[in-house]
């Protein structure tokens, strides 16, 4: 795997006449876990989709692994969408086979191991799984790809505390923080706080602060939640 690298330069995005992002510039050069934090409508999803090459920015440039982002960048990026992205008629097993066939970097062993350790029945159809199990399967499929960049849009939203804990544990167990970048957006700030290396605060389509979490604590004696209160209010 090549070392991960994401560069955004003065990125703006408009949906018709509605502005979603204005002038976002940052570089993610170090591997590790990044949290994109901000209220609803602050542009988190748009930002992630632009990084993934699923949306095109209206202005500015986005580079992933030293190349301008296109749909083909998906070979370097695993994207977890907030919406239901699985075929409901497939069984879990079929789904894993499908991913294995479609994505060359997909590790079937890793996926099956994770599914086994989560006690998910492999022969059940996706549509017959509970919401929590569906979320777990989605995370499994994302984490099973051996790519330098993982993007997760609201991996925890709408799930109960036990499932959230499970998902965070899976992330810690399966993301290689020395080789991969994981960017996740969330509002469960206090819950993900101990897992983050970096935070990116968003408000009204702008990026207000991009900082290392331990630096926040060391320099300001501030937790992420406190920093958020200061920055976003």
């Amino acid at each position: 795997m090549t070392p991960p690298l994401i560069k955004l330069n003065q990125v703006s995005k408009k949906y018709l006449n509605q502005t979603a992002l204005t002038n976002i510039t940052f570089q993610l050069t170090k591997s590790g876990i990044y949290g994109v934090i901000g209220p609803n409508g602050s542009g988190k999803t748009t930002l992630l989709k632009i990084m993934a090459g699923l949306l095109r920015s209206s202005k500015g440039t986005v580079e992933i692994m030293e190349k301008p982002v296109t749909r083909l960048s998906s070979q370097h990026i695993a994207f977890l969408s907030e919406a239901d992205s699985l075929y409901s008629f497939q069984t879990v097993n079929q789904m894993v086979d499908f991913c294995h066939n479609v994505m060359p970097d997909f590790s079937k062993d890793k996926a099956l191991n994770m599914i086994q350790s989560l006690n998910i029945e492999k022969d059940k159809k996706i549509k017959h799984l509970s919401k929590g199990n569906r979320a777990r399967v989605k995370i499994v499929l994302t984490l099973s790809r051996q790519v330098p960049v993982l993007l997760m849009d609201e991996p925890l939203s709408g799930l109960d505390p036990l499932v959230r804990e499970d998902i965070l544990r899976m992330i810690v167990m399966n993301v290689d923080v020395e080789e991969q970048i994981l960017v996740l957006s969330t509002h469960e700030v206090s819950e993900v706080e101990p897992f983050l290396d970096h935070v990116i605060f968003m408000k009204n389509g702008t990026c207000l602060l991009e900082k290392s979490v331990e630096q926040l604590r060391e320099e300001k004696g501030q937790s992420v939640v406190e920093a958020m209160r200061e920055v976003l209010s």
Partner: peptide, 10 residues
């Protein structure tokens, strides 16, 4: 990291 619930980098 898994046991105490923090980032492996920590």
């Amino acid at each position: 990291a898994v046991k105490v619930g923090v980032n492996p980098n920590t």
